[in-house]
Amino acid sequence: MTTINPGVDLKARRLPSWAPVAVAVGAAAVAYLLFYSLEAFGGGLILTGVGAVLLFLVGLLALATVVEGSRAARNRIATSLIYAALTLALLPLVSVAATVVTKGLARLDGEFFTHSMNGITAFDEGGGAYHAIIGTLQQVGIATLITVPLGIAGAIYIVEYGRGRLATAIRFFVDVMTGIPSIVAGLFMLAFWVLIVTPVFNDGRAGYSGIAAALALSVLMLPTVTRSCEEMIRLVPAALREGAYALGVPKWKTIMRIVLPTALPGIVTGVMLAVARAAGETAPVLLVAGNSASINMNPFEGNQSSLAIYIYDQAALASKYGPPRAWAAALTLVGLVLTLTIAAKLLARRNKFAR
């Protein structure tokens, strides 16, 4: 029988919780003295930050090796690198969000949401983005109504019914369309809808319209929706399908009542990614919808603006009033996409399969 010596410590030695913080503070202080205060190697904040990270990793590795052993030390270094990569990835996002919020709030007022730029010159202080908000909502809304049913239907065919060369060809073309530049979609819709289809219903005259922009955006959204829905449907466990088939449920009803509700959260995420991309597109909308400073509630006739075009126009103005309006429109666009995403997520969570 094995006996345990009471004098032997069975618990592995661990660094105290404050040790990594102390090493980080010391590394920051040493890096500040070496690279910033004394301006060694050129100085600068970036070099100081890089030096602090390197000194922290070296110090933590040495301290953890002495106290915990080499294996635990390597684990700590790997964990620290993961957190460093996360921080590095979040820095641009946080910087962009902070810049948009701080600069966009300066011009975000009631007039901005209730007035257009009709009659407002580059050197006038007033004006708003009401016409651009209406255009973005109509164009993206119509594109979503067109794209979501087609994308989900295409994904269902590829996963549940498609076999052989046809399914492979559809998947290949979806992948190819995913990388198509937005300007190509705009040129295609300009040549097809504006110059060929519109003259048939407009006494032989070509004309810009919001529906043309919506169709161009749907070309960009369709591959994203199809691809994301395909991956989400593939993740549905086969046991759910087999259980429904064993109970005598038809395949189409299994897809509608079992597969799609189970994959709904992922499908919503893919749709919102496509919506966010479409809402921020400028080139295809400018090509087929033109631009307008006045309010146009009819997407089937006349030039129509969007928030992306509004931002482009206002940012390019040689006036002190243009950039604040551009930042306010950028904040409005971000807030609009964020609101739609949160609403879609909340609706998806109501699904009983997602709980």
Rank of each mutant, 00 (worst) to 15 (best):
residue 141 G to M: 02
residue 141 G to H: 05
residue 141 G to A: 08
residue 142 I to V: 14
residue 143 A to S: 06
residue 143 A to H: 05
residue 144 T to D: 09
residue 146 I to Y: 04
residue 146 I to F: 07
residue 147 T to E: 08
residue 149 P to S: 03
residue 149 P to F: 05
residue 152 I to C: 13
residue 154 G to C: 08
residue 155 A to R: 03
residue 157 Y to K: 03
residue 157 Y to H: 11
residue 157 Y to I: 10
residue 158 I to G: 09
residue 159 V to H: 11
residue 159 V to D: 14
residue 159 V to C: 14
residue 161 Y to E: 10
residue 162 G to W: 09
residue 163 R to S: 10
residue 164 G to H: 11
residue 165 R to A: 12
residue 165 R to N: 10
residue 166 L to G: 06
residue 167 A to P: 06
residue 168 T to Y: 09
residue 169 A to Y: 06
residue 169 A to W: 13
residue 169 A to R: 12
residue 173 F to K: 12
residue 174 V to S: 01
residue 174 V to G: 02
residue 174 V to Q: 02
residue 175 D to L: 03
residue 178 T to I: 12
residue 178 T to W: 00
residue 179 G to F: 04
residue 179 G to P: 03
residue 179 G to D: 04
residue 180 I to F: 14
residue 181 P to V: 10
residue 186 G to N: 03
residue 187 L to F: 13
residue 191 A to F: 11
residue 192 F to V: 15
residue 194 V to W: 08
residue 195 L to N: 13
residue 195 L to V: 14
residue 197 V to Y: 06
residue 198 T to F: 08
residue 198 T to A: 13
residue 200 V to W: 06
residue 201 F to E: 13
residue 202 N to T: 01
residue 202 N to D: 10
residue 202 N to V: 07
residue 204 G to C: 08
residue 204 G to A: 03
residue 205 R to T: 04
residue 205 R to G: 05
residue 206 A to V: 05
residue 207 G to R: 15
residue 207 G to W: 10
residue 208 Y to A: 10
residue 209 S to G: 07
residue 209 S to I: 06
residue 211 I to E: 04
residue 211 I to D: 04
residue 211 I to L: 09
residue 211 I to C: 02
residue 212 A to K: 11
residue 213 A to G: 15
residue 213 A to F: 13
residue 213 A to E: 04
residue 216 A to V: 06
residue 216 A to S: 13
residue 217 L to A: 03
residue 217 L to V: 03
residue 218 S to D: 00
residue 221 M to V: 00
residue 221 M to I: 04
residue 223 P to I: 01
residue 224 T to K: 05
residue 224 T to W: 02
residue 228 S to V: 15
residue 229 C to Q: 03
